[in-house]
Each structure stands twice: as structure tokens, then as C-alpha cells.
Design a protein around this nucleic acid. Sequence first.
DNA 1: CCCATTTGGCAAGGTCTCTTACAAAGTTCC
DNA 2: GGAACTTTGTAAGAGACCTTGCCAAATGGG
Lengths: 407, 407
Amino acid sequence: MCQSGGVVSIGGTASTTAVLRVMNERAVFAEIFKLGKVSRPELAQATGLSKPTISMALTDLERARLVRPVGLRTGSTGRAALLYEIRPQAGWVLAVDVGREFVRLALADLVGDIAARRDEHRKGGETPDELVAWLGGLTRELVDEAGAALGDITLTVFGTPGIHDKETGSLQLAPNLPGWDRPGAIELLAGVAADAPYVVENDVDLAAVGEGAYGLGQGVDHFALVWIGTGIGMGVVIDGKLYRGAQGAAGEISYLPVGEGDPLVNRGRGMLESVASADGVVALATRLGMKGVTSAKDVFDAARAADPVACRVVATEADHIAHALAGVIAVLDPQLVVLGGGIGVQAGDLLIGPVTDCLRDLVALRVPMIKASTLGTEAVLLGAMAVGLTTARDLVFERAVAQVPPD
Amino acid sequence: MCQSGGVVSIGGTASTTAVLRVMNERAVFAEIFKLGKVSRPELAQATGLSKPTISMALTDLERARLVRPVGLRTGSTGRAALLYEIRPQAGWVLAVDVGREFVRLALADLVGDIAARRDEHRKGGETPDELVAWLGGLTRELVDEAGAALGDITLTVFGTPGIHDKETGSLQLAPNLPGWDRPGAIELLAGVAADAPYVVENDVDLAAVGEGAYGLGQGVDHFALVWIGTGIGMGVVIDGKLYRGAQGAAGEISYLPVGEGDPLVNRGRGMLESVASADGVVALATRLGMKGVTSAKDVFDAARAADPVACRVVATEADHIAHALAGVIAVLDPQLVVLGGGIGVQAGDLLIGPVTDCLRDLVALRVPMIKASTLGTEAVLLGAMAVGLTTARDLVFERAVAQVPPD
DNA sequence: CCCATTTGGCAAGGTCTCTTACAAAGTTCC
DNA sequence: GGAACTTTGTAAGAGACCTTGCCAAATGGG
């Protein structure tokens, strides 16, 4: 609606016939991704281009080693059609989830199939250099296992807690990753995968992307993933795209002024986080007199067994979450809110009902759907893959078209 | 990042040479908007196209009556260049701000110059039919004044309170516009400007667009306009575009759970709204013992004269606003927050300092800039104009290119 | 008054895509 | 098993677009 430079302006990029060809090849490439194994006539149908043009594009794409023929489709009447598909080895994406207790890595080919993966327990407290060396070793194992080479990796996507400050190249608000708040620390990550391009993204943001690509957010334009576990965060998807905010801090709802308590008391932790996170649940249960509670799961199990105190804790938790969501919904008006993270996944069945009920009193219009994530602990890794795949597909095409135009 | 149908996909639209021409003409058209009076060589430079192509595009655009020559640029060495500009009469935009006490109308030509406008006092309580008839009459006056015809209006943009529910064609949450909550009522607005296309947008959303096009939001990608007056609302601009939300209710922050008070007590009004709006300020001042206070302005004037009670009211108001903004900032992480509406404009000088200070204790990272709107009561009308102009420019081009391709 | 400089127009050439036509390779039916 | 039919793939010709290169026109300065 508005543009820099004062007033509004319509878009439009000038082009010549040469870029027309690139555009069409890109369209064919994208269509093959969408349709899988596909014949020339089907591509002509899908893109609106003529058969000869499709043939031209395919020979170019095949010479660039982006697609390959995979046999004939026979059975129906008429001549058998030669089928084409994306060449999976045309690109590799390394997805890395650097969590509090685990690191998870997945190496996926360009069509998104995971060729190799690892889940490793963290000792905790590793220095940045140690962590990078460790991840680098795991990456080499994965690459070997997949039958690829380290240099084949098109793009690496790291999911980490905290906020990636691009100006200083450091990680803010990530107490579980000591040493990464040093200016320039992020650049160390280039060493994990042989200086391939890499992206660092907030873990909860990636979980939201994962939810949009593989989970409940599929086909939903605007939704939010609220992550409730040891910490609290939110990933926002708007118009099908991850929204990061001006500083990359969109969705940092741990600081929402919710629940009783002086804001100044809980400085540095965030008000919502201190009352609604896993620790908050345990603390409240203990305060109300439950014995032997060490984890939030204990409380939820007790609530499922109809323990009256545990039920009160769950009700309070639902109330806190609902009040936080009321703010989110008022600002964003999403179509869907997904609850993820340890508490969201484990206790989704207990919470969704009371949260939704409570929201009816707090929200002006219709309450959006509230659902519990189905991706579990995979959400961040899948989100990293999804981000990596979209970017890698562009990168691979760009590179191929830039290098192979002659002849 | 994610698409319906399962997984991510790169874009790309297939095209033929014919659409190439349209693309280039659109690019030239857009460039003339950006540069104003401009010569052929300048357009060639700006678009990257060659001189003959520019000439071709210009003859087409001139034949479509979208641009016109405006004389020669002489003075420098070399042959004088023939300058072209947008033909202002190629399109007209009618902007209408239907407020609580006033209606404001502006008729702008395609380059955005206001050719005629009206500010009229509302009697209040008009039926939809009466309102439409009144607006229709005013529109005819404007059109006459501008030397245009009613059929020349390319697009009408209405700014109203409430939420335009497109499914039922009615207006929700707009108590000041009785009768417009009836299903299909919105369609009556087509009668204002002879069945020209029209758009109905929330007034605060339009104010945000106006701020982005003509005010403090120029060149800012992500910002929010918080409107504080008789009611409270917010317009959200993300990636330079207005964000409406799934139901068109994004930014309905009047229901934020802020301030003391039972949520159930203030149902239907919104908690934030009841404490922070103009009425809330007056109520608080009276409760604290101020005499003869009838409007929020009285309180702010007294505060400027260092009245201690008024100062306390202002401090409380700042505190409420800051708490609301804390939620907005946590969710959206905007680069800038603009305070608009009666209170935002009148008392911006008093509020911005304390609000910013208070936010430092409530926000995780850097506090975004907080500024008071400079557009005053014009914001909604200017936003309607901005929305209308972008859309009208596309419409006019589309129409011209669709009609004049032969020869 | 002549020259350097810039602008505008025209013709030729190259690239892209589409349409049309035809050859190639299956299936169906007798 | 073979003929007819249907679908696929390729080749040639034509149309549309943009660009390069060249020349005429117009303006200011010396």
C-alpha cells in the first residue's frame, strides 16, 4: 500500500526476451516440484506454454543437471510419455536444531527427503568453538552416509534459541548458549559445512515454519505458533511467510505483562514466562500443596487422574495462556493458533478446551481455532528444512542458470 | 516459506512475448509516476530498456490516454527532450472518511492532487439510506467542482469505524453507524459514486496507511499506528503493506486486558478502551478530584500548567498506554509506533516521554521509536487516498491495456 | 555561423515463443 | 496379428519483441 519515497507506486520490472526464457524455465522447474514425475504435455497444460517451449526448457534444465528423465508412463492410450523429475542430488540442505538438551541434524536432498540424520545429547556449556567442531564432525558423518560430498551442501539452516542480531553477528537472549552473545560469534557457524551459505533463525520461528509446511498450518495464511516449554515464545506466519519483525524479535511474548506480580521482580525472565512455563507450572503446583512434583508432566498426569489440586493448576495455566493469547489475537487476528513446545504438545488435550472457553470472554470477534501441534519435537528441524528447501531451490536454479547459459 | 499443498515451492509465472510488452509498458508507467516529468532517455536509463522500446511504450500509453507530452526540456546542451507526464485526468479517486462527528470527502486525480473536498458535520443517527444519499449529493458537487464526470471516478475508498465483514456485507463493532450491521448494508455504498468500484476499510487501518504514505511511516517497513481518541484501535503495516488479519480484525486492541478491573465488568467496551480512551481520562481526572473537566483536552491543558492531579492522570494514562504497547511490541516488534487520534495528537508531547521510559522496563530488546502523528485529523482521509491511488493506478492501466491492444 | 552534444526515428538483426505439420510410439479392437 | 486411433515428440515457418547501429534534427556554445 505504501512505499518508501513518499507516495504509493505500482510495481513492474522491465525485461527483455532473454529473461523471458529464464522466467519460463523457472516456472517449469517450479511446476516439476509441485507435480513430481511429470510429462511434457502435463507441463504444457500446467504452465500454459506450448510443447516446443517445454521441450526447450527441459533440455536446458537437464543440461544444468537440475532435472532428469525417469522412464515412460505407459498404460493409457497413445504414445508413452517420457517423464521428468527433479534430480534430488541437485542440492542438499543441512538442517540443524541446536536445542537446550539436544542437537538434531538432518541432511535432506532437494526434493526434501531426509537422507541422514542424528539426534545427539548435549553435555551443555560447550564453548562456541567446541560446538562448531562437534557439529562439523556430525555433518561429515551425515554427508558420508548420504553419499554426498561436503561441498555439495547448498545451504545450512540453524535453529537456535534467542535472537540473531545481524548487525553484530551475535545471539541475544540465549542464556543456554554461552559465548554466542560475543560480536561475530555467529560467523563461526560457517565452519560447520565448509563455508556453504548458512542461515540462523530463531527456533520457535522455525517451528512455526515447520508447522506451516508439514503440520497444522498447511494452507493457512495467517497463524501463530505459541511455544510453551522451558521457555515461552511465538512464531508468526503472515501471508504464508515468516514474519520476523524489525529486530527479529517478533513473537517474543515471554515478556507479556500477564499474571500477578510486579514487572520489576521478574526482570530478565519475562512475566508470562515466569508464570506459564514448565517451571511456573511446577512452582504453582508445589505452592498449592502438591508433593513430589518435579516436572510439569507430573502435574498434567495428576490432572488426567482427576487430582483436584492439579486440575486447579491446569485451570490457572489455561487462564494465563488465554490472557496471553487474547493480546496476540487482538493484535494479529490469526486464523489459527497452534500450541507447541513441551507443554503445548503434552498437555494440549487438557488446555485447549479451557483456553478456548476463556478466550470467548476476552476476544472481540470470533475466537480463532486453537490446536495442539502434531509435529512434537520435530517441529524446529522440519522448519529448518522447509526454510532451507525453499531457499536452496532458488539458489540452485540461480546458480545453474547463471553458469550454463552458453549454448 | 510455506504453501498450500504440503511443501514449499518457488514461484514463477510462465509468459509469452505479448505479456513482455505489457510488463515493460507497466514498468514505464510506474517510472513516470516515480519521476514526474521525464524524457525518453531518462526512462531508458531508469528502466534499462532501449530508446526504441521506450518510444513504443510511450506511444501506446499516450494512445491509451494515460500519459501526455508536456513540452520540451531546454537549457542544457543538445537537442531539447520532449517530456512526458501522467495525465492526471486518467483516473479519479474518491476518498471518504465517515467519522463519528464528521464526514470528509476528497476527490483526487491520478497523480494524487486533491481537486475538491468537503468537511461536513454529521447530525448523527442517519439511516444508511440517508447517509448514502447525502454522500452521493456531496460527491456530485465535488465532481462538478473538479470538472469531471461521475462516471470518471475510478475507485471510491470509504474509511469507517468497525470491521467490514465481507461474508455478510455488513459492518461489525461500529455502534456509531446504526443500521450498517444489517447483512448487505455495505452494498448500499455502491450508490455513492455511480457503481464505480469501491473499497471499505477500517478508519484506523487507513490512518496507518496514510501515515505510511504521507506521514512518519514513510520508508518504514514495519510500524503500527495506535489510535487513541473516543475509541482505541491500531493499524498494522508489515512489509510496507497494510495487514488486516484473518477476519479483518487485526489491531483491535481495545480489548487488551490492561489496567485494573474485572474483564467481565467492561464487556463490550474493551478493557483498554475503557481506561485509556478520552472518556477514561476524564473519568479518572474526576475521580481524583479535578473539577469542571469535560474533555480530555482540559486535563492535558491543566497538566501543561503543572496541575499536580492532572499530571498524575497523564502519568497513569502513559502507564496504561505503555502496558498496551508492551504487548504490541512483544508480538510485532515494529520499527516505529505512531500515536494518533485525538489524544495521540493533542497530548503526544506529554505522553511520549513517560511512555517510552515505562516501556524500557517492559520490553525485552530495544524500544522502538514512539512518535506522535503529524497528520492530525487528515490521517484517515489521506490513507483512503493512498489506498485508492495505488489501486486506481493498477485499475486504470489494466483497463487501458485490456481495451487498447488492437493496432 | 559552425561544431559538439543530445534527442528522436528508422532499418536490420537476433531471440524468443507459437502454430502447423508430421513422424514416432503406444493402445484398442477386430 | 494387423489396422485404426490416440497421444507424444520434433521440425519448420511465422509473428512479436527488443536491441544495436546509423542518421537526421535540434539546441547551446564558441
